[in-house]
Amino acid sequence: MNILVCISKAPDTTSKITFKDGDTKFNEDGVQFIVNPYDEWYALVRALELKEANGGKVTIISVGTADYEPIMRKALAIGADEAFRVDSEASDAYQVAAEIANYISSNSFDLVLTGKETINYNGSQVGGMIAAIIDSPYASHATKLEVNGSTAMVERDKQGGVEVLELTLPAVISAAKGMAEQRIPNMRGIMAARSKPLTVVPASVTETLTETIKFSLPPAKGDVKLVDPENMTELINLLHNEAKAI
């Protein structure tokens, strides 16, 4: 079984978020990057489990500049066999999806896995776009994935229950919490990652469908106002006139 896992980098969750270039770009100075948790903990680990059960190969792909390589090495340390980096700055979901789709069309995979979203922009778009471009079935937000011959069984949470889907391979599936459990890379894996192939592929897509106009931070938390529990009039007044919540 040949599985491709799409790996994105994301800022560590404790990073301080600032912007540059007139608030149109995320300022990466001093930011620690990690493998996007949905890609790592669920998509990659489930791919490895499927490989361990059925044999085959796990390849990872990222669209990004050379500074992606440390997080790609981590994915290799966890157990992926081979890595490809499309040498291009990731600009928007379409451009990333189109690059990956190009790579897929000249190679052959039974299964393409992505995280359900990347924790920086939370777009949840790349998986669906890849599926659309390569014209294959797609299931998003999968919490469980089993493969049986040429069929994938997927579960995903619905309000008040679970939905079970069946997809014919090759298929694209985005992974959510529950699909697998995080694996800590072991020392042998880390040392082996050194010699696993990481190939740089030239970019082929220049088109983007979106343009970032401006980023802004959520408003700072305001001061807390304490209202005497007996003074309902003031509470209502504050909620109505100041917080405009009622």
């Binding site: 090495r73 340390a77 800590i184 890379p185 072991n186 880390i190 040392m191 990652a193």
Partner: peptide, 16 residues
């Protein structure tokens, strides 16, 4: 990067 990854594995083990 490799040395950092080794440290990270140790730290993740402690944390988790």
């Amino acid at each position: 990067e490799e040395e950092k990854m080794i440290a990270q594995t140790c730290r993740e083990f402690i944390a988790q």
